[in-house]
Structure formats: structure tokens, C-alpha cells
Amino acid sequence: MITCPNCKNQEVPGAIFCSECGTQLIEGASARTHEISTAEGKQIKTSDTTVFPKPPPMAPDSWISLHMVDSGQILTLTERSEFTLGRVAEGQPIMPDIDLTPYNAYAQGVSRLHAVIKLVHEKIIVMDLGSSNGTYVNGNHLAPYVESPLTHGDVLYLGKLKVQVLFGEKQTEKG
């Protein structure tokens, strides 16, 4: 039996879509839908991170960057001290600060509101927001709604989406 990453329904081996919730169970060959949302997602969200005149790796006033390991892209986060991570689903009122849809978030099992990263008293903290598939730091599962500290170079798993956190200059100097 195989288990649907979204709803945990048991499916017969060979199934390609979950009969319970319609989630695609195999990787790769992702259907066209994702591409559509990619285009929209880019317009909606990551703009405030990629439009910067100075491209990544680091903008001077940034305290953290997210290295999307699978695609190699780096998102630099600035200005605010708290960012929620997730994916935008049309018709849903939930809007994460960082939309991970362009990074195949849906297929990787990222929840709409998955986790939050914040800067509190010069420390960087991650907290899972009750996601379906959990958040992991360097392979350790985080209990939902419990804050845990991050260090430079930590690898986060949001569901199966791999994200490495890179601290900004200010932070690394201190750390």
C-alpha cells in the first residue's frame, strides 16, 4: 500500500492520483496546473524578494535568505522581521508572506500556511504552523507551534520541500 502525502489515505500500488483527495502521488510528470499557478504565484508574491536591484546572494540589510535546494534559487528576505511560508491556493483567504508555489510546493506537500520564520532579539526562530506534513530541521521533526532556534546553514524540510537557511551578514557576524 502507498500512503497519500496529503490526506494519508491508503492507495493501491500503481495509483497515480489519490482517490480520496485527488492529490498526485507520483513525482515528476507534474500536470500543467502547477505551471499556471507558478506564473500567478510569481506575480503575487516573491516580487518583494526578487525585485531588488542588487541580486542575491545577499542584500546588506537582509537577515536571512532561503536557498531552495532543488532549484538552486535563493530568496532574500528583507524589511520585515517575520515571514510566514506556505503556498497560495486560489480562493483561499490564507496568504503566506512567501509563496512557495513556484518551487513545486504543492507536489512536495507544503501546506498553505506551513511555517513561520522570525527574528526575535537577534535570534532566528522557526515554528511549524500545524502543517499537514510537518516541518523538519536537519531531519528532526518539529512539534507544531513550538519555536526552535535556527543556525546558519540549517536545512529545513517543509513537507518534502528542502530549504536551506542562510543568515545575513549581520547575523553571521554575530553568530
Partner: peptide
């Protein structure tokens, strides 16, 4: 080997019908 995209695409739509 992933299934042919044509099959996946058709199935993704059929999954909706079946839901």
C-alpha cells in the same frame, strides 16, 4: 520511469470527475 505525461494529464482530469 515516470508514467507518460499524456496518461497523467488524462488521469488528473478523470480524478476530478471521479471525485
Amino acid at each position: 520511469e515516470p508514467p507518460p505525461p499524456e496518461v497523467v494529464e488524462a488521469l488528473s482530469r478523470l480524478t476530478l470527475y471521479r471525485l
